[in-house]
Structures are given as structure tokens and as C-alpha cells.
């Protein structure tokens, strides 16, 4: 099948890639654009490890064709830290122990970013409902909720401190 050039903006930089129509976005990102933050967990649209932000929507890159992204603005975990400084979400996940193995984390943070854009002050119930497309096999989610609450507070300009008993000392 004839290949086509697809152009989009990835973490602020313009990219052009040559793809077959059947190529999934996750493969283009990981194999052609050296963007391996989005992970392949299930490959069946269930786990959210492959989540990227596409034109202001959280989507599963294993269930989007690259040809559908022509002209899009895309954000992956690679685009979060600026000039060596962690994004409040990255800081929150670190301060609140929001990860163990880290496999789900790029998807978690990228999804949480869009959630906080839409709702800067989510309740715990809001966080649990709107993060339900991301699975984590390690943490039990409690610290992920805390990490997002930490980031939300920081992004609202409030003073934040870790709730972790050892780190807090």
C-alpha cells in the first residue's frame, strides 16, 4: 500500500513521517520518532500505558492510526520537563511515591495533565473516575491519587509538601 507523509507537532517540534495507512501511532512514536515514553502494555485499548495528548484529548496511541494525526498537536511524557525542571505532575509522582516499576507512569502523567487542564481542582472521586482508563499493577492507586492532588495544588499556586512520612522529615 502506498506510503504517505504525515506531519504533526510533537512536543513543540514539527515532524514529518512516512507511514503506511495501517501503521498505529504507538509504533510511529516508538520506532520512528525515538519517543519511547508511551509504552505498549496491552495492545488491546485497555491499559492506558500508551496514552498521549492529541489535540487536547487523551488518547490511546495503540488505537489511533498515524494517518489520523496529520496536522495534530501532540504531547508525550518527553515534553513535560522544561529546561531540566520537572513538571508539577512529575514532581508530584516523585514526592508522593506515585510509582513503583514506572511502566504505567508516562501514560498516567500524560492523562492526568489533560484532566487538570479540564478541571484544576478535582475531588478524589473526580480523579478516580477520570483516571480510570489507566491501569497500574503496582501502586494500588492511592499514591497516584495523592500525586495528582499534589500537582493540582502546585499548579494552582498553592504551597505543597509531600505527605510521605520519611521524605517529610
Amino acid at each position: 500500500m502506498a506510503k504517505t507523509v504525515v506531519s504533526f507537532t510533537l512536543n513543540g517540534s514539527p515532524v514529518d513521517v512516512l507511514v503506511e495507512p495501517r501503521e498505529l501511532l504507538i509504533h510511529t512514536l516508538r520506532e520512528k520518532l525515538a519517543t519511547t515514553g508511551p509504552h505498549i502494555g496491552c495492545d488491546t485499548s485497555h491499559c492506558g500505558a500508551c496514552t498521549v495528548d492529541l489535540d487536547g484529548l487523551s488518547v490511546k496511541a495503540c488505537t489511533v492510526l498515524t494517518v489520523q494525526c496529520d496536522g495534530a498537536e501532540m504531547l508525550t511524557i518527553e515534553g513535560f520537563a522544561k529546561a531540566g525542571a520537572l513538571h508539577p505532575l512529575q514532581e508530584g509522582f516523585s514526592q508522593e511515591h506515585g510509582l513503583q516499576c514506572g511502566f504505567c507512569t508516562p501514560g498516567m502523567i500524560t492523562r492526568a495533565y489533560r484532566l487538570l487542564q479540564e478541571n484544576p481542582s478535582p475531588t478524589e472521586a473526580d480523579i478516580r473516575f477520570w483516571m480510570a482508563g489507566n491501569l497500574c499493577r503496582c501502586t494500588g492507586y492511592q499514591n497516584i491519587v495523592k500525586s495528582i492532588q499534589y500537582a493540582a495544588a502546585k499548579m494552582r499556586g498553592e504551597t505543597v509538601a509531600t505527605s510521605h512520612p520519611v521524605l517529610a522529615e
Partner: peptide, 9 residues
């Protein structure tokens, strides 16, 4: 229906 990411698409 489904989960947040599926509902965006």
C-alpha cells in the same frame, strides 16, 4: 461507557 480515553474518541 468504556473509560475516559475511549470516550474522547
Amino acid at each position: 461507557i468504556a473509560d475516559p480515553q475511549v470516550r474522547y474518541k
